[in-house]
Amino acid sequence: MSDMSRPGVIHDLGYRHYDGLREGTPAIARTLFVTGLRHVYGLGRSGKSKVMPFLLLAMSVLPALIVVGVVVLTGLDSLPVSYADYTNQTQLLVSLFAAAQAPVLFSRDLRHRSIVLYLARPLSAPVFAVMRWLSLTVALWLFMAVPTLMLFIGAMLSGLDKSDQVTQLLKAVVLQTLLALLIAGITGLISSVSLRRGFAVVGSVMALIVLTGVVTAVQAIAAEQDADSASTTAGLFSPWSLYSGLANAWDAGIDTFVPVDGAWAVAYALVALLLAAACLLALVARFRKVGSR
């Protein structure tokens, strides 16, 4: 073209086809997972949406730092709180984090109907739902694992027995993973049904915080009345009491009103797994239904 030499001219190249690499479904699913995980923490979103997740994370890490400081300075011979119990003590923060961030992954696409654009692409509705669930699960797990790791580092710095600490840490990590699966399922399901963010948050708070409060009260009263099995049974009805019950049964450093042992431990584990599976199946069904509309 003769006018190529003229500076400052934008040449319209016309439409260019793409004949480069196209990734398969697993790679697309992985991209969706990573994007979802980033979005839970507000990364790749507006500055405002980073405030809530990181504020909550800072609040849940701060006590761990204080504990570490105390242990290192005073030279205690054990951590004043076990790894599993630390998560239990900061359960309000974990619950708030899940309630506030689940709508990011499960309400937005449905409310704005952009889900249709996803489902018109290679990923199917069930894969989409599972990937969203995994994103939230991992995000929640990280939220619990960061302060746990701080505590562990502190314990190592103050020279506590390594094998003891590692055992306790691994137990806590397994329990936290189970808890993350549960909470992600529950809050994800609530958010995918109540599409208004406010309702979703309130619903999740009801399910995680209020319900746990009620269960704890019932457990305490039953234990007070020496109705041990009633107290343990009540513990089946909230993810947090399942968590602490299992931790108690597994000797991971959480005290419950009535020790959970024997068949009860199996029942707790079964209920936790079934609940997580049921939530996931419900999520898949929900996205399948939306996809066909």
Partner: peptide, 21 residues
């Protein structure tokens, strides 16, 4: 079907990735 809080640029990039680019 467009989320209101995302720019068209970011959104189209994301959708292209969801198609395997």
């Amino acid at each position: 079907c467009l989320p209101p809080d995302v720019s068209a640029s970011d959104f189209v990039v994301h959708m292209a990735r969801m198609s395997g680019l």
